[in-house]
Write a protein that binds this DNA or RNA. Structure first.
Length: 215
DNA sequence: GCGCCGATTGGCT
DNA sequence: GCCAATCGGCGCC
């Protein structure tokens, strides 16, 4: 797999649908990066949908708009990259269209090629730790805001392609690490994959408890 | 204007 | 299991 054939990236129309459907159908697809001129390839195994103005967990909730999230309101099939906790990058693909504020967060990738590049970027050896988390996969694939934010996916340094040969089972579960609408089942994973992000259930339970206090 | 908190991660107890 | 790192937006005084 040293000299990759460039498969066609997913068409814009794929993303002109609700983030929930796009998030589900992105599981199993391939993601290829040429950031820094170095080739890396993986399979998306975990995503989350953020629905937009009526989703309390979405950066586009109530049409919120500021300098850092302008790309979230861009056209379908464009990248929205934001900084999380002041230190990590997280990558989203915009859904529906201009102004929708809805997107799919990429949460975990199964590394397929360019593992040494990923290991070098991540300073980690274990393959299960290279791309299992939204911040981790951005680091492994060389994704930064300046690299992708606001750019159309097609023709950008990071492209997502259909994988005709993949036929796994896709599970829907509650989203991770959020405190609002924490029980909406908008997280999609490849069932049984050892490359999905690991997270204890306790933080989730705490988040739910915060939203629905006892008494 | 000030303080809190998050679509996270990694290191330490 | 717990907590610090780190920073911009937002709620609140």
């Amino acid at each position: 797999m040293k000299s990759p054939r460039r498969a066609a990236p997913l068409p814009v129309g794929f993303f002109e649908r609700s983030a929930e459907i796009v998030a589900r159908e992105l599981v199993g697809t391939l993601i290829a990066s040429t950031a820094d001129g170095r080739w890396t390839l993986g399979r998306i195994v975990e995503t989350e949908a953020y629905l937009g103005y009526d989703d309390p967990a979405s950066h586009g909730y109530r049409h919120r708009r500021h300098a850092q999230n302008a790309a979230l309101y861009g056209p379908a099939a464009s990248w929205y990259v934001y900084r999380s906790y002041g230190m990590h990058w997280c990558a989203n693909l915009v859904c529906l269209g201009e102004g929708s504020g809805s997107a799919v967060l990429l949460r975990a990738v199964e590394p397929l090629d360019g593992l040494d590049v990923m290991r070098h970027r991540r300073s980690v050896e274990l393959v299960e730790s290279l791309c299992s988390g939204p911040g981790r996969l951005c680091q492994a694939l060389g994704i930064t805001r300046s690299e992708l934010d606001g750019r159309l996916m097609r023709g950008s340094p990071v492209e997502v392609m259909a994988a005709a040969d993949w036929s796994g089972v896709i599970e829907a579960t509650p989203r991770i690490g959020i405190s609002k609408a924490a029980d909406w089942p908008l997280r999609f994973t490849a069932a049984g994959s050892r490359f999905v992000s690991r997270r204890t259930v306790t933080s989730k339970l705490r988040a739910v408890a915060r939203e629905h206090p006892p008494g």
